[in-house]
Amino acid sequence: MTRYIGKRLLLMIPTLLGAAVFVFLLMRLIPGDVCELRLAGEGAYADEKAIQLCREQAGLTKSLPRQFLDWIWGMVRGDFGVSMWTGRPIIYEIGLRFQLSLQVAIMATMTAILLAIPLGTLSAINQDTWIDYGVRAFSIAGLAMPSFWLGILIILALLIGTQALWGTPWMPPIQYTPIWEDPVANLSQLVWPALATGYRYSAVAARMTRSALLEVLQEDYIRTARAKGLVEHLIINRHALKNALLPVVTVIGIEFAFLIGGLVVTEQVFNLNGLGKLFVESVGNHDYTLTQSLVMLVALVFIMTNFIIDLIYAWIDPRIRYR
């Protein structure tokens, strides 16, 4: 097993390298660069010399292979460089935002799991009853409703609700506080976006749980469990769910990785400074270094998530053995 883990970690290197080449070239295919944008953006007078100087400072005048190797070598040494737009270290730009996005993603995933597995199970074991219809309506609504819109509804409900209750409206804080500094402030800000995205996410997972469970319930070993006279909750929880969870784990994992960098609009609605927003800004600014680092980060999250999914698979299903 340790050998397998080592092998998987080694295999990450070519994947990450591929992502690096791809984003490096792609960024440079977009017309214009950060210096033009900063000095001559919005129709200002562009002093050719100033632009040239800026490019030299940003290292854009070196040959492409040289730029690429410098960047990779920097990352290998743990130096991610500075943002071309703000001039601040990339670690600093990404740090807090990554924390925030990671926390929202984890909380949304937990919401999704806590909603999806019980609901999907209820729906499957009460197939074609009003409980099943209710759960399915709930998940269809989740799929049909964009998270940002649910976000807006949540904010409105908070405003109106607190106004009615206490006489003064209350809004979630806008300033991000890390959870270990002030958990109450932190959670009162991040619970809402986590709920808004978690709901949609749970809809996908609940449907998956339902269909996987319905399939597993037809298996011979479930009939064996019934023939043994086991009580129903053991048949469902011990015999059926463990088998049904495999596809659900995949769905949840992929969705989780997506949430880390993909929550642009929801972050906007809740006024969060997360990775999604940073991503859009950095591409818009032609901030090569920042965008590149962000892509590498998201790629790493995807790879790690896949890796963890595989480990969970092996843990659930003893037939899977990795070598």
Binding site: R223, K228, K242, N243
Partner: peptide, 29 residues
Amino acid sequence: RGRQIAMVFQEPMTSLNPVLTIGLQLTET
């Protein structure tokens, strides 16, 4: 079921739960 009337099925390959140990499947009854 299982206590007074027990059953052995036709398909030994699929009648045991693949993700639970033999021990658990025996003792739980």
